[in-house]
């Protein structure tokens, strides 16, 4: 059953079209990867789902309800959580307190402090940050701050988790670690949409891949088929790797 549906979704700033007619579904319990070269509209798409920017065309449905006009905090209460590409922990709060914010205000909506602490500690347990829970998050290394982002989202008790480049900038070992983490979340029944630049990582964990290029969906399918799709190679690998040389 589809938990999230995007129909003809479009986004433009003035005359600039960032996304045009994007259609796809995400089924419950799935991990869907969204890939695409820079400027493909991946993060914009994520901002549309989490309602940080207005949708200019089409319809997004979550659990059968149209969410076009919802506010970000309402979306959160409905069970959608997300992380950000640029990791910005709430400074002045400890790691645990950061995660508690998620427990207080997400779908979990913890009523008391002790309840929030319990939820937060559980989330930290899952991502393996319990040992630094009383630290100031600003001093953590990048990999751990990314995990903190995930923990914060987890503490909200989400049904759908949007991960915005959580694997970018990680070392190979950290990457394997994070991939294992994400698989674990899937086993807990959380549906995941992951935007990623790191091809290897996303291919390894996704059930399905959606490829965006210049604001359009150009391909969709199983990871092993996507890598052979000529359009994808042309658009994604071609342009990206050509530039680097």
């Amino acid at each position: 059953m589809a938990i999230l549906e995007a129909k003809n979704v479009a986004k433009s700033y003035g005359g600039l079209k960032v996304l045009t007619d994007v259609n796809f579904e995400v089924n419950e319990g799935e991990i869907v990867g969204i890939i695409g070269p820079n400027g493909a509209g991946k993060t914009t798409f994520m901002n549309l789902i989490s309602r940080l920017t207005p949708i200019t065309g089409g319809v997004i449905t979550y659990k059968g309800e149209i969410i076009n006009e919802k506010k970000p905090h309402e979306i959160a209460k409905m069970g959608i959580a997300r992380t950000f590409q640029v990791v910005k922990p709430f400074g002045g709060l400890t790691v645990l307190e950061n995660v508690m914010v998620g427990a207080f205000y997400g779908k979990n909506n913890a009523k008391s402090k002790s309840e929030a602490v319990t939820i937060a500690e559980e989330a930290l347990q899952i991502v393996g940050l319990v040992d630094v829970k009383d630290k100031d998050p600003r001093i953590l290394p990048l990999a751990k701050r990314k995990k903190l982002e995930v923990a914060r989202a987890l503490a909200m008790g989400p049904d759908l988790l949007l991960l915005d480049e959580v694997m970018a900038g990680l070392s190979t070992r950290e990457l394997d670690d994070m991939m294992a983490e994400i698989i674990k979340l899937k086993q807990k029944g959380i549906t995941i949409i992951a935007i990623e630049h790191v091809m290897k990582a996303i291919m390894g964990i996704s059930d399905r891949i959606v490829v965006l290029h210049l604001g359009k969906k150009i391909a969709e399918g199983k990871p092993e088929l996507i890598v052979q799709n000529p359009d994808v190679i042309e658009a994604y690998l071609g342009s990206k790797y050509a530039k680097k040389e």
Binding site: H73, A76, K88, P89, G102, A153, M156
Partner: peptide, 11 residues
């Protein structure tokens, strides 16, 4: 610290 992050966390 981050208003967008706060809002998507349900605040």
């Amino acid at each position: 610290v981050d208003e967008d992050a706060a809002s998507v966390m349900g605040i």
